[in-house]
Computed example of a mutant assay.
Amino acid sequence: MRHTVALLTSTILLTGTPAAAHPAQAFPVAYWAMNEPPGATRMSDSSGNRLDGHIGDEVGTGVYVQGSSGYRFDRLQPDTPPARPGHLVVVPDAPGLNPGTRNFAVTIRLRTTNHFGNIIQKGQSTTGGGNFKLQIPNGRVQCSFRGDRGVLEADAPHAINDGDWHVVTCVRVGTGVALAIDGRRVAGRQGWTGAIGNSWPLTIGGKLDCDQVTVGCDYFAGDLDYVTVEVV
C-alpha cells in the first residue's frame, strides 16, 4: 500500500537502519478509509481496533474527486467567530492513539488548494502529556510531536497545495522525527521527544478546544482520502 511505502521510506532515511522499518514490525492502530456515503455520521475504522469516529455535520462525505472518494472540509475564514465544531471528525481517546514511547506514524492522503489549517491532531500546544499534529501553514506540511523531553518538528521545504492528491507520512522514532511526501523523505529533525500521552480525543479538520477569539480553531480546508495510524 502507498501509505506503507511512505512510512518505511521515512523511517529508513531518518534512522539509517533499514531493519527498524521491516514490514513485519508495522502494526496498524487505525485505518480510516473515509469511504462513507453522503450524509454519514460515523467514520469507520477498518483496522479491527474499532476506533470509529463521529463525523461533524459540516464535513462532506462521499465526495468523489480525481478518481478517489473521501471527505471534504470547506474553507472557513480564519479566526472568525463562532467556533464550528461540526467541521471536525472526532475519534474518542484510546490508548493506542497515544504514541507513548513507541515508534509512531501518521499517514494521510490529501488534496487542497488552500494554505492553512490543522489536518489531524491529538491534544493541543498546552495539553498535559504532550501532543502530535500535522498542519499545512502556507501550503507546506509540518508535522510535530511534543513529549516530556521536548518538541520536534519537521517542515516540508515546498508547498503541496496544488490541487493534486499527495500522500504524507509523519513518523516519530527514537532518534527523531521525519516527514515523507509521496514516498520520499523531505524533512527530519534528530532528537528525542520523550513520552507522549493525553486523554484528549483525536480530531481531524481542526482544533477541539477553541473559540476563534483567544484561540484560533485552525480549520483545515481541502479533501482527505484516508488516514492511518501505525506503530513500527
Rank of each mutant, 00 (worst) to 15 (best):
A6F: 02
L7C: 09
L7F: 03
L8F: 00
T9Q: 08
I12R: 00
L13Q: 14
L13K: 10
L13H: 05
L13D: 14
L13S: 08
L14H: 06
G16P: 11
G16H: 03
T17E: 15
T17H: 15
A19G: 04
A20Y: 15
Q25S: 02
Q25W: 08
Q25E: 06
Q25I: 02
Q25C: 00
Q25D: 09
A26T: 15
F27T: 13
F27R: 15
P28K: 04
P28W: 11
V29P: 01
V29D: 00
A30V: 10
Y31I: 03
W32A: 05
W32D: 04
A33S: 12
A33D: 09
A33Q: 12
M34Q: 10
M34L: 11
N35H: 04
E36L: 09
P37H: 05
P37C: 08
P37T: 07
P38F: 13
G39S: 07
G39Y: 03
A40F: 12
T41Q: 10
T41E: 11
S44T: 11
S44L: 12
S44K: 12
D45P: 03
D45R: 00
S46Q: 05
S47A: 12
S47K: 11
S47I: 09
N49K: 05
R50F: 14
R50N: 13
D52S: 04
D52R: 06
H54S: 14
H54E: 11
I55S: 02
I55G: 01
G56S: 03
G56C: 05
G56E: 12
D57K: 00
D57L: 09
D57E: 09
E58I: 01
V59S: 08
V59E: 07
V59D: 03
G62A: 01
V63G: 03
Y64K: 15
V65A: 10
V65L: 15
Q66I: 09
Q66V: 15
Q66N: 15
S68L: 15
S68W: 02
R72Y: 05
D74E: 15
D74V: 05
D74C: 01
R75Q: 12
L76R: 06
L76T: 07
Q77R: 13
P78V: 02
P78H: 02
D79V: 01
D79W: 02
T80C: 07
T80M: 09
T80V: 10
P81F: 06
P82C: 10
P82M: 07
A83C: 00
R84V: 05
G86A: 11
G86K: 13
G86Y: 14
G86M: 11
H87A: 09
H87E: 13
L88W: 02
L88S: 03
V89F: 10
V90C: 10
V90D: 13
V90Q: 15
V91Y: 02
P92K: 04
A94T: 13
P95T: 06
G96K: 07
L97A: 11
N98T: 06
P99N: 03
P99T: 05
G100T: 04
G100E: 08
G100H: 11
G100I: 00
T101C: 09
T101F: 14
